[in-house]
Amino acid sequence: MIQALETTQLGKRYGKDWALRDCSLQLPIGRVAGLVGPNGAGKTTLLHLAVGLLEPSAGRVLVFGEAPHSVLPRVGFVAQDRPLYRAFRVMDMLMLGQKLNPTWDMELAKERLAHLNIPLNRPTGKLSGGQQAQVALVMALAKRPELLILDEPIANLDPLARYEFQQTLMDAVAQDGLTVLFSSHLIADLDRVCDYLIILSASQVQLAGDIEPLLSTHKRLIGPRDREASLARTHTILQARSSERQSNLLVRTHGAVLDPSWEVQEASLEDIILAYLALPAGDSFSARYQQIQEVAR
């Protein structure tokens, strides 16, 4: 089945340093995916590889089954800092979009900007940060893309502008069945907006998958410290905060937690993400999972 985005051991190297390495993931069509990770984890590198701004040093990246540069009309992209030609009026930017994209929908672009009360004849350099973000988003949406890629689109926006951006985005997803991949620092909004999650840390993929199974398999367990070791034989402990007698664990469960001495609570998406991000560099979920498999045998 064709994935919206598929990478196979994708890597990018600058000199001796790998900005991204061994990245394998499959993003199904129709998902809204959040890409999270600390600065320098390789988020921008991954996104740039997906839109053909970078060539891989290793591995492969396919968008709708093809090389990124050959499917540009089907992909909308908004880079970090939302670049626009500052001297162009908003209308000029739309003209640019029309001239350079065969699938451009001018009516849609004008309609969305009118809905947001963004004047067409103001130079983009004179718009507010929120308005610039909206213009950049409309530029990407007016292409009628099938996949939309956004690099930290709401960074440096005030809360209202952020919310309005997300409204526009979700509305476009509802209307067109768009697949979306965006990177973000802000974890708080993710469970409202995303249904797929990619966690990148230390240039590697820690996790990639649908959010719902993630929420149902990850639990917060509170219980006696001395039961921790036996728990670790069946389930993967991602994070442990323990006092002398009590353990507070974030666990990736494999099956039900049978030991009644553990109180099982829901883990919020934010907690899960933070736990994965806190894994030491070089450590990855897949490595730990394999450890469990070894022990269980």
Binding site: V32, Y163, Q166, Q167, L169, M170, D171, V173, A174, D189, R192, V193, C194, D195
Partner: peptide, 8 residues
Amino acid sequence: VSRLAINP
């Protein structure tokens, strides 16, 4: 979706 900025 439009009001709450929520995933469809």
